[in-house]
Design a protein around this nucleic acid. Sequence first.
DNA 1: CGAACATTTGACGGGCTTCAAAAGTCGTGG
DNA 2: CCACGACTTTTGAAGCCCGTCAAATGTTCG
Lengths: 234, 234
Amino acid sequence: MLNTCNCSACNDKYCAKKVSLFSNLDTNQILKVVNKIDHKSYKKGEILFSEGDIADRFFIVNKGSLKVYNYTKDGKEQILYILSESDFLGDLNLFKEGVFDYYAMALEDTALCTLNKQDFNHILLENPEINLKILDYAYERITTLEKLIQTLNTKDINTRLANLLINISKNFGIKKGKEIEITLPLSREDMASYLGLTRETVSRHLSDLQNQNIIKMIGNKKMVVLDMNELNNL
Amino acid sequence: MLNTCNCSACNDKYCAKKVSLFSNLDTNQILKVVNKIDHKSYKKGEILFSEGDIADRFFIVNKGSLKVYNYTKDGKEQILYILSESDFLGDLNLFKEGVFDYYAMALEDTALCTLNKQDFNHILLENPEINLKILDYAYERITTLEKLIQTLNTKDINTRLANLLINISKNFGIKKGKEIEITLPLSREDMASYLGLTRETVSRHLSDLQNQNIIKMIGNKKMVVLDMNELNNL
DNA sequence: CGAACATTTGACGGGCTTCAAAAGTCGTGG
DNA sequence: CCACGACTTTTGAAGCCCGTCAAATGTTCG
């Protein structure tokens, strides 16, 4: 009997345990989940799925990160979510004969664990307490979106940018004393897409924050938050 | 035994039945719900609750409409939801010892049916199938928010306004042949708050749409959509 | 009918977008 | 390890559109 995850990308024996939905399952149940998981890798820039694709799989981000996005009516990309290790996707659509209403793209080389719809629903039947966790998660997602809306309607661009940086630092930041070092998963263009701006405007305002000694850039992809208080106050 | 709803605003004997969550309950269960309902009326402009208030009640809009809103970091009101008859509110917070993270205000004279947390949870225990409906509803709310985000990041203001008008027309519009007549629940300022604009800009762009023969205003509060196709195409 | 309030219209300034070009960064192959 | 090219980011200049302020007009309700 297979009793560990055979995923090459998994550090943990039981990769499914990373996911909050499954974190409380007993070993026996976790094994059932793990044995049904398929593994997929995507290169940076690869598209996982597109709008209109049938949502018949549940995705767990095991390594890497990805963006979930759509397009505004005037054709500009709009990022809705940034996912990183142990986040998941596909959940809510699984209850309906649904399709995705957005796109997902790997922001770096990314390893996913996936479950198909039947297996996911089977696990749900055997562990009905997961339903409550899904509701928790839905509520969290609603809160995230409501906050994003508040951010998007903030006219002051430094404040808007600050909100994004604070969010990113929670998932991608490493505390080093009073400073936080972030390896940015997003390009300037991606940040612009998230904030409803252009890459030029993002670039100018990052310089602005740098001149105010609130952040410091190291190359293009590394950023140090020098003054988290000031970032929060913006 | 009380076998009808004693709410003066209720047309229906069983006002709770309006609500999708309760629509499938049998008469016996509906009666239990109805008997536990409290009735409250609010004048136009009255605040139902504020950010930070304990969310210990479930609200059903029985008559009228209300806005749910918050403020951006630079202090501008941001409307998140417009609720009308048979919509409900308070749901998700009921599972936690939660507080509201937004405000609600009556847009016109409004009658609500309310249930307290204990009664709501008791009904849930007796009718666990409601849990699935709550999840459906959460998913719908997520979709609504994702669409709002797309709207807010659309630079073309006529398009942005069109999205709002289309939404409003679904809940407040009356079809008259090819035209749709809408009694606007929102003032210009409210529309601006929803779209992240100023009342002046909304006013100017409504004139714009009027000059293009897409809509026609009758006074300030009535609007006729002359060309729904064109509105959709914007 | 009048007062309070909401909406429209006008003029101006500022900041974001756009277009363009320079500078910087990254990955690949020699 | 360096060099090259592709790509990303930064910087600059100009223009447009929304926000702001102000005033006039319109609407609602006592």
